[in-house]
Design a protein around this nucleic acid. Structure first.
Lengths: 218, 218
DNA sequence: CGGTGATATGAGTAATTCTCAGGTTAGGCC
DNA sequence: GGCCTAACCTGAGAATTACTCATATCACCG
């Protein structure tokens, strides 16, 4: 369930103390994000709050982006875990239930998980490295397309539970749906602290209508 | 057509030279965004390339965010101008044509307007100012919700050209549609330099299906 | 208990943002 | 024109930040 993607740590914490420290730094990073936003977040303050010297911070994280990217990864893990947990208990029969459940879970995390409202699964950064360098096609810079992972998981669930026809068409549709849902929910939370309920409802409607064309005839 | 929103300049350039300078700084900002991304953009480099001393930069822009916000505003103006121009010449009869035209125009700007692929109308920054301060409800921090302006304009066009029923329902639907389309198109341009054509097609499909419920029966 | 590799530390360096005291310019008025 | 005044411009430097690296400390084992 964990370690979904590459990971961006310089050194992976091996002993318990290090692990706790990294966890603490991620926690404080999340809380700081809620307080001051991404722009104003400083590595020094994260380290200070976590009770960790700045040097130790840089033992594990390459930089501020690496820190936030790691947080996004942790969020992704948590989301996928919660998703599979809820799908295990509830007996799903119609594919729209999958949508509703996923959106509800996402909203729940937006409300309760610190920092999730700001970064969720990443996608904050646009960092091209110079225009059209050499042959290297560094388009998807690893862990930069976490929404694709969510789409992967949703596809597996839909194929399993509802017997949807797998394939590139469905996969692309799910990536689009996740991307769109993400942005509309971000809007919902920009509009109102707890998430505008009308916009959350619209989000479900949007995804349902869109996916109707790519799904078995219910 | 211009000066759509508040504007974030410290001092509005009055004389021709100042105006040209501000314009030049915005141009260079846009090009730098394409080259190095938002994160790595520095005010010093923008000033240097524009041939303007750093002090002058700060005469007009409060900071890096203000600069990019101003660029986003200029992009918004340009987009709205191009939109109305094209709607004037082409005789629209069906509402889906409005969608297609708007998306096409957006895509065209993504391809040709420097920096547009990175910032388009803004929405990069999440900058809360401390949790739940006092009574002040600073939710929409001026110019921070530019997509709403696009939705406004689209609503006017749809009501005018197609006789759509105006009202809060339609308006909300358009805001959602614009937000979703924006994110999917961003994805399309992250995936491929010129914008993945499949994803662009999916974007149109997404919006069309969603808005069907909010539109006259064609 | 001494040795060895892994881990921790924080003062310091380089790079950045933004200011402000003082110099320059534009343009009206006699 | 010549003069005056307010608007405008400038860049050295103060304050802040990201990140490094030489040294100190620790964990563990023979």
């Amino acid at each position: 369930m964990s370690n979904v993607s590459a990971g961006t740590l310089r050194r992976r914490p091996a002993q318990r103390r290090s692990l706790e420290r990294v966890e603490r730094m991620l926690d404080e990073c999340a809380r700081l994000l809620d307080e001051v936003g991404y722009e104003a977040l400083t590595t020094k303050e994260v380290a200070r709050r976590a009770g960790v010297p700045i040097g130790t911070f840089y033992q594990f994280f390459p930089d501020k982006q690496g820190l936030v990217r790691e947080l996004a990864l942790r969020n992704l893990d948590a989301f996928l875990a919660r998703l599979t947990a809820r799908f295990g208990s509830a007996g799903i029969t119609v594919w729209t239930e999958v949508i509703d459940l996923a959106v509800d879970e996402f909203v729940a995390m937006k409300r309760t998980t610190p920092g999730f409202a700001i970064v969720d699964f990443g996608e904050i950064f646009q960092t091209p490295g110079g225009p059209a360098i050499e042959g290297t096609n560094r388009l998807l810079d690893a862990a930069l397309e976490n929404n694709v992972i969510v789409a992967d998981r949703l596809q597996a669930l839909l194929v399993d539970l509802v017997g949807a026809p797998p394939g590139p068409g469905l996969h692309r549709a799910l990536v689009v749906a996740v991307e769109a849902a993400d942005s509309v929910l971000k809007l919902a939370f920009r509009t109102r602290p707890g998430g505008d309920p009308d916009l959350i409802a619209e989000c479900k409607d949007l995804v349902r209508r869109y996916l109707t064309g790519h799904m078995p005839a219910r």
